[in-house]
Design a protein around this nucleic acid. Structure first.
Lengths: 222, 222
DNA sequence: CAACGGACTACGCGATTGCGTGGCTTACTT
DNA sequence: AAGTAAGCCACGCAATCGCGTAGTCCGTTG
């Protein structure tokens, strides 16, 4: 219930990278009117914004609103470059795309938030508030995609009914050890390790060490 | 800009699972007063809520607000059970925990949203609106944790300078194929496949097939 | 142009692996 | 008490693997 003290200076420099002139100009005007926003600067492409960052002088941005579908370099490609050159800037993706493919590529590239253009400009204002509180602004439908992506692998959590010894052996096999070394580590004959190995093959439905290791790592067993 | 037509019936049955009596009662009262909420029912534990779901009659919940730190079964353990018995219910975690460990366990268990108790009750109302729009309610700080989790593995995207042939071989090794089979698939001598294999070992700093496969899968190369 | 390094192809040998087979102990069923 | 299933341990052999070694092609460098 208690709001933490405001850690962010009260005026933001916002950059807006968006190729649609009408949208960019309209959005700039609205954002400029928001409280705590000192300046808004618009760009038609990532390349243009990157050039501005290289140029001497000029105030560095605190927030970058970034479209994905841009001419030349896409917004997703631009994220790591912008992050490298604009230290401390929060990069918020602002786009129409809500297919999981693009969303995840943007998130993996290091976006600090993900908004949809379909929402009202209030969402942008709320996003600034969220950043100020130390959180990440994220559209609800995007959040749903993210949650679904996490929830999927959960049911695949089968341990294939491996016994204790079998898990011990498999764990060491994943680490790249040979049967001989494994046998020494858990004080067994190499033949016994081999037996457990074959039980593992049977339970995982593979017949090589590589197949077993691949499956074990993929299923998140180790 | 254009809001889609409301697809959700205008009255929600909300369940609140929370062991702190004072908080549960206070929250129930506030939530009951929200528009579109028809009824709120409180439980002290997952077990109690599960029993109520088994019992005949009674209205099934549309939204379940769930605490994590509960006596007996934890909220996280309860999520899959609640989901199985309350088809169609949206399960929203409502807790004080915001360490990534608990957050991710809850999300992997299949939560439809994640709110923090520290926020005002407005957040709960907003969450209901978000559900109605087909999105997932998520606290901004939780969203930040999620984004950071995704962004981390990205910089680890090194391909270790593998050549084309080496990638071909490694890809098939991950599938569990033997050298002989790999050689046949890409029309090479076993000896040549073996050479590429050793180059892979060197570049990945391993010296066994298992180690190479393990590393390749982990780094997300395949 | 010669020299050089990198990618690719190839051979042979000793060590390791995959598999058929069997024995032993514990625990639960009949 | 006998039966039976599961986990654990072990042997031996054919197939496979890890490694030292070497030749060819090709783009780059001096």
């Amino acid at each position: 219930m208690i709001a933490p003290p405001d850690p962010v200076p009260p005026s933001l420099v916002v950059w807006l990278i968006e190729d649609n002139d009408a949208y960019r100009i309209a959005a700039s005007r609205v954002i400029e009117g928001m409280r705590d926003v000192r300046a808004v600067r618009g760009f038609r492409s990532c390349e243009a914004a990157l050039r501005a960052l290289e140029a001497p002088g000029g105030e560095p941005p605190k927030v970058i609103l970034l479209d994905v579908g841009l001419p030349g370099m896409s917004g997703i490609e631009g994220i790591p470059l912008l992050r490298a050159r604009a230290a401390g800037a929060q990069i918020i993706v602002l786009t129409v795309f809500e297919d999981s493919e693009k969303v995840f590529r943007a998130i993996c590239a290091g976006a600090d938030g993900y908004l949809l253009k379909g929402s009202s400009f209030d969402a942008v204002r709320d996003a600034f508030d969220e950043l100020r509180r130390g959180g990440a602004p994220m559209n609800g439908r995007i959040a749903k995609l993210v949650l679904q992506a996490f929830a999927k692998p959960a049911p695949a959590q089968t341990d294939y009914g491996l016994t204790g010894r079998e898990r011990e052996v498999l764990e060491r096999m994943v680490k790249g050890l040979t049967k001989k070394v494994i046998a020494a580590e858990i004080s067994l004959s190499i033949h016994t390790v081999d037996f457990h190995l074959r039980s593992i093959y049977q339970k995982l439905h593979v017949h090589t060490r590589t197949g077993a290791v691949s499956k074990a790592v993929r299923e998140g067993l180790f």
